[in-house]
Design a binder for these strands. Structure first.
Length: 488
RNA sequence: GGUGUCUUAGCCAAGUGGUUAGGCAACGGUCUGCAAAACCGUGAACGCCGGUUCGAAUCCGGCAGACACCUCCA
């Protein structure tokens, strides 16, 4: 099926086709591994996952997905420094080798990050590669040399800067976002980090080392500039090295449009001479209870904290997919609860597809109502999960599983396999046997109650039922028996 | 300060000129000794003020509020 995507460059929805070889090459800006990723980060990665799984399963393209791990920046350096309060015993002993400390520090959070996204249903096998910035230092240096040689970079006090002014004369700087540089807020740009630039708009390609920081030697213009790469370098370099330019789609949070992505374009163009990719796709932010997530408001959540509160990560996944990726998503606990119920409703429907039913009266569904047509039709237009889901729920209520012919049930099982290749939150299988062990004590009380019911001793029956409820179980009566269920 | 986005029922969330989005909750019904579950059904909305139009949630203007970028946050 043809896929259409909103492109941040053109600000409209466009038909998507890969540039070459019938393979989609996609690069997603990954996390900086200095702390537990928060649920706002998670939304970005869920969006990237939705993108890749839709392109594969609905678009039916082969796909190479790359997501970087930023393991060198101010925050990771600070966290791994000798004075760091963020150093944890689990990271091992700090050594005199600062680079090794950085590695140990970032590896710790990288591992947790990969665990987190897997809990959210992201499959690591779907990645072509998850490269680390520090594994591409010499390649980044090579790109800086190219940019320098082409005249778009200058050295100042041991750092290398990109000359935005000069680049703007040859190229459009501001493709993703129009920035009016004359109207920058006055006064706030003067900080310790920016004084040595020629122009406040210039950004750093290579940052000279400070005392106590890990660094790499860098030969440029016949002098050695020990230091480390600027933030934007890693993406430009790894895209080129791993996917090749141009590649197809670049994803990331909307906040990265400027300066990060704008600077990436400038670097690739100024160094490699190639516009890196035609499709830029950005997800909107997540808010918590209607407010920006922030530590001071106490609404700053990592995935782990939410799981500790007893939330199911797949309910969180579903809750986020119930909103469109280009709108702000308001994360609330009530919202996750609603998503959990809605998810279960679909799951129950799927279970029923595997059951025999006495009524098989529905044996035909009009094409324009048939689930795969309505559902994937919506997904294919800019990954519109909320619309697609509304079609799904409509279908479920119009065509109850218990009335479908066996043939339709079998067809639908395959449809749900495909739907689930994107949503990844359901089991496409018969309902598992209730194999939770019910304690004998509960069984006894339940049996007593059943007897009391037979005797029409309602008072006793109700008493025994509330006793069972208090013990964490519930009784589901049926016509001539009952079932015991453990409460969640 | 500049620029941009957004404001839809109790909650979440689609909808860009006329036709039921959807989910959760609520309410009513069927079933049941009563509940629960399940199933069926119901109501309720477009931030405020003005304008354009036969007709506005949708287009235009103003106001209020929220958010974002400009400042290495996804």
């Amino acid at each position: 099926m043809k896929i259409q995507l909103y492109n941040s460059l053109s600000k409209q929805i466009e038909d998507f086709n890969p540039i070459r070889d019938n393979i989609v090459r996609m690069y997603s800006c990954g996390p900086t591994v200095y702390n537990h990723a928060h649920i706002g980060n998670m939304r970005s990665f869920l969006f990237a996952d939705l993108m890749q799984s839709t392109l594969r399963n609905v678009g039916e393209w082969d796909l190479k997905w790359v997501m970087n791990i930023t393991d060198i920046d101010d925050k990771t350096i600070r966290g791994s420094s000798f004075e760091s309060e963020a150093w944890l015993p689990e990271m091992g002993e700090q050594t005199s080798d600062r680079l090794e400390n950085l590695r140990n520090f970032t590896n710790y959070y990288k591992t947790l990050f990969l665990e987190d996204i897997q809990k959210l249903g992201i499959n690591l096998d779907d990645f072509h590669k998850i490269p680390h910035a520090t594994d591409y230092i010499s390649e980044m240096q090579e790109l800086i040399r190219k940019i320098f040689k082409n005249g778009y970079a200058y050295i100042s006090e041991g750092s290398v800067y990109f000359n935005v002014e000069k680049y703007s004369q040859a190229e459009n700087y501001g493709k993703l976002k129009k920035i009016d540089f004359s109207n920058f807020q006055k006064g706030v740009r003067i900080d310790a980090d920016t004084y040595e630039r020629d122009d406040a708009n210039d950004f750093v390609l290579w940052k000279t080392k400070k005392d106590g920081e890990p660094f790499w030697d860098f030969e440029l213009n016949a002098s050695n500039l020990p230091g480390r790469p600027g933030w934007h370098m890693e993406c430009s370099t790894m895209e080129y090295e791993i996917l090749g330019l141009p590649f197809d789609i670049h994803t990331g949070g909307i906040d990265l449009q400027f300066p990060h992505h704008e600077d990436e374009i400038a670097q690739s163009k100024a160094g490699y001479g190639i516009d890196p990719n035609p499709f830029w796709c950005h997800n909107e932010f997540l808010e918590v209870e209607g407010k920006k997530m922030s530590k001071s408001l106490g609404n700053f959540y990592s995935l782990r904290e939410l799981l500790d509160k007893g939330l199911d990560p797949l309910d969180i996944r579903f809750a986020m997919l119930m909103a469109h990726y280009r709108t702000k998503y308001n994360f609330t606990f009530a919202g996750v609860e609603a998503a959990a119920k809605a998810r279960q409703k679909v799951q129950d429907y799927i279970y029923q597809l595997f059951e025999e039913s006495s009524d098989n009266s529905i044996n035909e569904i009009p094409e324009n109502k048939y689930l795969p047509n309505t559902f994937f039709g919506e997904i294919a237009i800019d990954l519109h999960t909320p619309k697609a889901l509304s079609k799904l729920f409509e279908f479920i209520s119009n065509y109850p599983a218990g009335k479908l012919s066996n043939e339709l049930k079998n067809d639908l099982k395959q449809v749900f396999v495909k739907i689930n290749s994107i949503f990844k939150i359901w089991e496409i299988a018969p309902k598992p046997e209730n194999n939770v062990l019910i304690p004998q004590e509960i069984l006894d009380i339940a049996e007593q109650r059943f007897q009391a019911k037979k005797d029409k001793n309602w008072t006793l029956a109700d008493e025994l039922r509330s006793k069972i409820t208090q013990m964490g179980y519930s009784i589901l009566d049926s016509k001539d028996g009952y079932e015991i269920k453990q409460n969640d």
